[in-house]
Computed example of a mutant assay.
Amino acid sequence: MRWGPLTHEDAPLLAGFWAAAGTGQSYTLDDVREQLSHHLIDLAEGTLAARDGDRIAAVGYLPVRQSAEGGSHLMRLWGGVHPAYRGQGHGRRILDWAIAAAPRLSEKAFPGVPVEILIVGGEDDRRLAALARATGFAAVRTFAEMTRSLPDDLPPLSLPEGIAVATWSPELDDEARRVRNESFRDHWGTVPHTRESWSGHLTGSHNFRPESSFLALAGDRAVGVLMTHARGPHTAWIQVVGTLREWRGRGVAGALIAHALAAFARQGYLSAGLGVDLGNPTGAVRVYTRSGFTITRRDTNYVLHLVQGETRDEATVAVHE
């Protein structure tokens, strides 16, 4: 087994790893190339892979965030272990590496800001739950994926008074980002998008579908946003849906979703999906349920708080309360 950072040449091997890892989402070769070239990942310091011949057996991918607010820098560790190599300690080695690497990476991006690591796994993943507990992580949140089929039983479109729906365009992009940032300020674990990260995560991805992304406008001001990626050839995945606080409770999100679902059906998609924090304070789950979505997967979020500047041999971890 050879351990070392990922390189751009690893894209085909990494795509094969993700296909075998059972994460619940498939990644195309183009998806993986985007991951390896993302502006927030330092391949040399922020990735680690175990290679067995021409197969990746385990991987850790630890990008910094685009910004740090709320008193800490929450870094999500992506990765896992190939099913053929589980039970051999590789997952623990990835976590130990991340615990050592996160403070160094965070200090470069946000000097002096406390750092936390987030790992996510299926609600019934006992192996990950045990590993998380053994390394000091605490379960803090449950997220879910919700899906629905198309085109049957589409919700009726009822626009709130004074609201019009516009398809995303480059001229509306700053408004879309502004609404996303303002509407997500009270959402756990989120931070504002910069123009660069918004492009990197949303509009610059090859999966972005501008014709399937919409804004709710009150006059010339956006008050709601819905941004869509394609997930495979048949699924429209709602990456972002948000409403400004002062417009919540007026049916803006429901109208955006109804408009989007009708568009998805016309565009030939067979299903739609989105992710949601089950502890979301805005009542989002109810809105999505009324729009025909049902929960198809639950994921547990585990967080570990780290002391800035600690080294691997000296690391002492404190469980996030």
Rank of each mutant, 00 (worst) to 15 (best):
V165G: 07
I41M: 09
V287I: 14
L14Q: 02
R141K: 13
T316Y: 04
A100P: 06
L304T: 04
L217H: 11
L256W: 07
T167R: 15
P233I: 06
Y27M: 11
G273R: 01
H73A: 14
D124H: 13
L172N: 02
Y302E: 05
A230Y: 04
P281L: 02
L256S: 10
G162I: 09
W78D: 14
G219H: 09
G79W: 01
E321T: 12
G91F: 00
L131E: 10
P103H: 02
A265D: 07
L202E: 13
N301S: 10
V319C: 06
L157T: 13
S67K: 09
I117R: 03
R177Q: 10
V120S: 12
F17N: 00
E171D: 15
H187M: 10
T282S: 12
S67E: 11
V285E: 15
T311E: 14
G279I: 08
D186W: 02
F143V: 14
A84D: 15
A102F: 00
G189Y: 01
T28D: 14
N207H: 10
A58S: 07
P114G: 06
T7C: 07
L43I: 12
P281N: 07
D125K: 07
G242Y: 00
S271W: 02
H229D: 12
E161N: 12
H320S: 11
R2F: 03
V307D: 15
I257S: 03
H39P: 15
S72Y: 10
A44P: 11
F208L: 08
H320F: 04
R51T: 09
E107L: 00
N301E: 14
R92T: 15
P114Q: 07
G242T: 08
A164Y: 06
E182D: 14
F143R: 14
V120E: 13
W237C: 05
A101T: 04
A49L: 04
M227W: 05
Y302C: 08
G91Y: 00
V81G: 01
R33V: 08
R177H: 06
A134R: 15
D152T: 13
E69W: 05
A132C: 10
M146T: 05
E34K: 06
V287L: 05
R221W: 04
G53R: 11
T282P: 09
A258I: 10
R148W: 04
G162W: 09
V252H: 01
L261H: 03
T7M: 05
L6A: 08
M75C: 08
G254I: 01
R180T: 13
D186S: 12
G204C: 04
